[in-house]
Computed example of a mutant assay.
Amino acid sequence: MYSVIKKCLFRMEPERAHQWAVNALQAAQQTPVLLWALERKQAVRDPRLAVQSGQLHFPNPVGMAAGFDKNATIYPALAALGFGFVEVGTLTPKPQPGNSRPRLYRLEEDDAVINRMGFNNKGIIQAAHSFSTLHRPSVPIGINLGKNKKTPQEEAAGDYRTGLRALYRHGDYFVINISSPNTQGLRDLQHADSLQFLLSDILEEREELRRETGEVRPIFVKLAPDLNADMMTETVQIGVKLGIDGFIAVNTTRSRKDLVSPHRTEEGGLSGRPLSSSSTEAIRLIYRVTEGQIPIIGVGGIFDGKDAYQKIRAGASLVQIYTGLIYQGPSIVRSINQKLLSLLERDGLDSIQEAVGLDA
């Protein structure tokens, strides 16, 4: 069925097609019985797929990456598609339109997408309202935070602290996005001195919120694939030393190696199949640096269960998809989870957690 829908969607301008999908999922959310039927059809319920990370329970390791549900308006419908967790955002303190259009390109010949969206979103106040009104699904919800484009670099920590405080009671975990290539200067925050100050400030805010609420929300840092091994190692070591709870590997890349699509020269971040190997290598490096003691969410180039299993064996406790969903459709979630079960049986493993880091 998706092959027919895909033909229609791929005739549309990509951002318009994305909005059509968002509208369709919002419409589905208006009918609880439809969400129930969708989840019943899509979800793969098997205890071997469950992941326990700290206080968070994930029914399966396959999550929706940030960028699809930018404004936290469709996470109940995404959860009903069978995802084990959903990450919303990127959200900034103030609403912003993002970069000028067109800013999203399909590279069909490469199973890839280039975007230069620029954190377009309606801001944290609108997101908080959405969280207060929508049905809460049973899977964990992550909130991806960014800084506003007009916020000076030296004041970036304030934006992340503002987002964390405003949405703290709504997120099961939070992501500090300092790796998008589409906000000028954002990736400079990954450099040692800037990173030390930024993360210290954010974790100080988290400690204040812990004292006020009695709740500790895990904080992940999302890393760029374009860091060399030494820089990524240093970034990870700083994060671990300060008390960061985990890492997401990786964001989109500026690399254009071996692409054939006519859109390959467009500015922005590349996602999809070409990112697969660099993502897996980053996961493996982080796992080794942290000696497997820090959870890693692997993302980049996952199109099937074998791709997901490769990242898990490299060291990822959980994985996320986005571009794969665009090209394969909603059935990809169920397909990946079913394949993971067959691979566990092949390898004689009793749970997906036993596979984490086996190839690292």
Rank of each mutant, 00 (worst) to 15 (best):
R256K: 06
W36T: 14
V236S: 03
R210V: 11
V356C: 09
R165N: 06
L38C: 15
F10T: 02
L186G: 03
H263I: 00
I178D: 05
N228L: 02
R334A: 12
V221F: 05
G305I: 03
L198M: 08
H135Y: 11
N120Y: 13
N71Q: 13
Y2F: 14
K41Y: 14
V62W: 12
N121M: 06
P152Y: 06
Y322I: 01
E212L: 14
V175S: 13
T290P: 11
M232H: 01
A21G: 15
R45F: 02
G272L: 12
V216C: 00
C8H: 06
D110H: 03
D46E: 00
R11C: 03
D258Q: 14
A66F: 06
S3Y: 07
Q353R: 13
L270I: 14
A128H: 09
I336N: 06
A192Q: 11
S138A: 15
M117F: 09
R45S: 12
K150F: 06
I141L: 14
F247K: 11
N148Q: 04
Q42L: 01
Y168Q: 05
A21D: 06
V221L: 02
K257N: 11
Y327K: 04
A21I: 15
L56A: 02
S331W: 07
D188T: 07
Q196M: 10
T252D: 01
L91Y: 01
G324F: 08
V175K: 07
S277H: 10
P14F: 02
F68S: 00
Q19M: 13
P330D: 08
L349G: 11
T252R: 09
I202S: 01
I312C: 08
R206I: 07
V221Y: 03
L186E: 10
V299F: 08
G84C: 08
T92Y: 07
G67R: 13
N121G: 04
V250A: 11
Y75L: 10
I312Q: 05
S331G: 11
I141H: 02
I143W: 00
A28Y: 05
S261D: 13
H57W: 08
G324D: 05
R116S: 14
S53D: 14
G82A: 05
E155K: 13
E204R: 07
Y75E: 04
F85C: 10
L223I: 10
A37F: 00
Q52T: 14
V289R: 05
D172I: 00
E15Q: 14
N177V: 10
V33K: 01
K7P: 00
L344Y: 01
A157V: 05
Y168R: 06
V216N: 10
L318S: 02
L325M: 15
I244W: 04
E109A: 15
R16C: 02
G118Q: 00
R48L: 00
N228Y: 06
I283F: 00
A37K: 14
I286D: 10
S100I: 04
R40F: 02
N23G: 08
S53V: 13
P262A: 15
G246W: 02
E215S: 12
V299S: 11
D307M: 15
N182F: 11
A37V: 09
L78D: 02
R169F: 07
A224E: 04
E108K: 13
G272I: 07
E39H: 15
G118C: 05
I332Q: 08
S317T: 03
N121K: 03
R45M: 04
V250E: 00
I326M: 03
Q184R: 09
A229D: 07
R334I: 05
I238Q: 13
I296V: 15
D159K: 10
K41P: 03
Q42A: 14
P59M: 12
E13P: 00
